[in-house]
Computed example of a mutant assay.
Amino acid sequence: MTAVTRLVTHVDLDDGPTDTRQLSVSARLEAVLTDGRRVVLLDDRGWSSTAHGTGVDIRAYTSVEDIERTARTVVGPDEPMDGETEEQMAAAHWGALAGLLGRQGVEVDAHELERLPHDVVLSERLRAWLA
C-alpha cells in the first residue's frame, strides 16, 4: 500500500515584482509517497515582503530560515475566522489534504499527515537572489 513519507514545500521567486526592496515568492506543497510519486496538495500559496526605508536591501534582513518558517506557515492551516478555533481550522486543513490524497488513491489519516516531516526546498533561482 502506498503511504505518504513526508511533505515538501517548494519555494520559488514569483513572476511578480522582486528586487532589492521587495521579495515575492510562490509556494507549492507536495506529499512524497513511498512509491516515489509526488502529489501536489496546494499550488496557490505565496507571499510578498517589502523593505522600508531608503536604500534598504531586503536581502540583508531575509534568511533561508525566515523563508522556510514562512513557507510552512502559508501552506499550513489558516488563521481562525468566524468564531472557529485554531484546532478546528487545523482539523479542517489536514482533513481536506487527507481527502485530496484519498481521491488520488492514497489513504492517510489527517493526524498522521499533520505529524509528518515537512521539508522546505528553495529553488536555485531564489537561493541565487538571496546570495
Rank of each mutant, 00 (worst) to 15 (best):
G36P: 03
P80T: 09
L126D: 00
D78M: 06
A96Y: 07
R72L: 04
L13V: 10
S26W: 00
Y61W: 02
T2G: 00
R28T: 15
T85P: 03
V74M: 06
R59D: 06
H118A: 03
G76T: 06
D119E: 12
L101M: 06
E114H: 13
A131Y: 00
R69W: 06
H111M: 00
R127V: 12
A27V: 15
H10L: 13
E68K: 08
G102D: 10
V121K: 11
A96H: 07
G99M: 10
G16Q: 07
A3R: 08
S49W: 13
A27Q: 09
E112I: 00
V11A: 04
D66S: 13
R59H: 04
S48W: 10
G55A: 08
I67S: 11
S123I: 07
T50I: 15
L122T: 00
T9S: 11
T54Q: 03
R21W: 02
L122C: 14
L122S: 05
L23N: 05
R115M: 11
D15N: 05
R37W: 02
M81G: 12
A128V: 07
V32Y: 00
G95Q: 09
E79M: 12
V121S: 14
V75I: 05
E79Y: 05
E87N: 07
R6C: 07
V40R: 14
Q22K: 15
M89V: 15
G55W: 05
R69S: 13
T85H: 01
R103M: 12
L41N: 14
Q104S: 12
G46N: 03
D19S: 01
L42R: 15
T34P: 12
S49K: 13
R38N: 12
A96F: 01
A131C: 11
V40E: 06
